[in-house]
Design a protein around this nucleic acid. Structure first.
Lengths: 242, 242
DNA sequence: TCAAGGCATAATGTATACACTTCCTGCATT
DNA sequence: AATGCAGGAAGTGTATACATTATGCCTTGA
């Protein structure tokens, strides 16, 4: 939260106002500042962001393309709402896709740089878990590490479409690997162990095993989510990467 | 998804020019009239389509969101090109996703109407294949039937995100279930048999089997594609649904 | 001859005015 | 009171002018 609600920091931004607007709106939507189902008024947005309607419309069209907004002709854009069933399904979809990515990587190999990144994320995770339970700050740190692990594998899969689809999954509330879902230290630690196994399967070219492990790895988050939903139906944002 | 951009007859034109333009451009891109890698000039397009740049830009943004175009700020849009590796991978991705859809349907059941549609597509397919080999017109007919089968299952999965992702796969050259890939009558007939098995697995709630069969079903198209590519590296558009 | 820089041209980005559609409001009618 | 139809306010769709950025060509200097 850097800038006031009003203006957007123009100067050194990527260049186009459209991008600034879409970036800012995406943040606000994913961060929950703009509620699901909310209607987005072009005039009001352009006023509050101090730009004309043109870049606002461009940004809205982009976000609709990313699946964050719903659009109806002559009726404008609303923040997309996800039924609980689709939120849960999203883990299955992501599991299949990331599993496929793991398979591709096992078949195609990792670069030296990619190996280094992954090994470092594994080591850093190990260090965090050595101390037993960990503090909220450590959890934030681990989310970062976890994200690196998944991103590196995804990048090594060398498939843009696959990457884009997984990114879409991350835009589903509570489905991001960097977000949400509250549960036990034990589960998180277990999932870090998964990383070791997945990496080993990739290194040794056991592509089928890598795929299966990754699918199960992501699927376990779904299980944890369901469990936590049953315990406290109105569960909010907490911690626990995968 | 026959969006007849045909014009003329359909009295109820959506109304907005943006939609007309995006529909038309999508057709031209998927149909190959606009070559992959081609640059799309806003002014020229607006002149040739007899609209202003505004709806043209809107359409381009939409198509970029659908993954058909690449966009670079201040440099405009180009028709996305797919490396052969991504074209082949697309079958794996689609196989995973449609397999997942089949699983969902097996778990969640089919409506009476959906059952009817599928059964009719099975019967009509049977009738076509009874005659032995079939003519090009029959192949066109079967592509329609095949599309209905897949679309119905996808619809029954009741998951919008999944449907959208599979739709993206269909936009990859040579990956559409309605398009391309030349091969033997035998393979096509075999894939029609797959439909019977998949439907049976769904009806009896064998969700894992339905998923596996569907994944294999789509994967077999990839095999046929690879085979045909090896035989005639410059393979073009032919027939053979899946 | 070649390289580097700037100028001209073209293409994209943005702002704004106007047209059309939707939707709400309120009045009249039943 | 309920219904339905104006009429208007609000909001999106489109056109167009202008600003800004990219690109190619040409000049200029070594």
């Amino acid at each position: 939260m850097a800038h006031g609600a009003g203006d957007l920091a123009p100067a050194v931004r990527d260049g186009t106002r459209s991008l600034s607007v879409s970036d800012r709106l995406r943040e606000q939507i994913l961060g929950g500042e703009i509620a699901a189902g909310a209607r987005l008024n072009e005039v009001r947005l352009s006023e509050s962001l101090a730009v004309s309607r043109t870049p606002v419309r461009a940004a809205l069209q982009v976000l609709a393309g990313e699946g964050l907004l719903d659009y109806a002709p002559n009726r404008g854009y609303v923040v997309r709402t996800f039924p609980l069933s689709e939120i849960v399904d999203a883990y299955d979809i992501r599991g299949q896709l990331e599993g496929l990515a793991a398979r591709f990587v096992a078949e195609r190999g990792l670069s030296a740089e990619e190996r280094l990144t992954i090994e470092q994320s594994l080591r850093e995770g190990d260090a965090l878990f050595e101390k037993g339970a960990f503090a909220p700050s450590a959890m934030a740190r681990y989310r970062w590490i976890n994200g690196n692990f998944h991103d590196t594998i995804l990048g090594a899969a060398k498939n843009r479409m696959l990457a884009e689809m997984i990114r879409v999954c991350h835009h589903v509330p509570m489905s991001s690997s960097r977000n949400i879902v509250a549960f036990e230290f034990h589960d998180v630690r277990r999932r870090h162990d998964d990383h070791h196994r997945i990496y080993e399967a990739i290194l040794t070219g056991q592509s089928w095993r890598a795929e299966m492990l990754m699918r199960e790895h992501v699927g376990s988050v779904k299980s944890s989510l369901i469990k936590s939903l049953e315990e406290r139906p109105r569960a909010g944002a907490e911690a626990a990467p995968a």
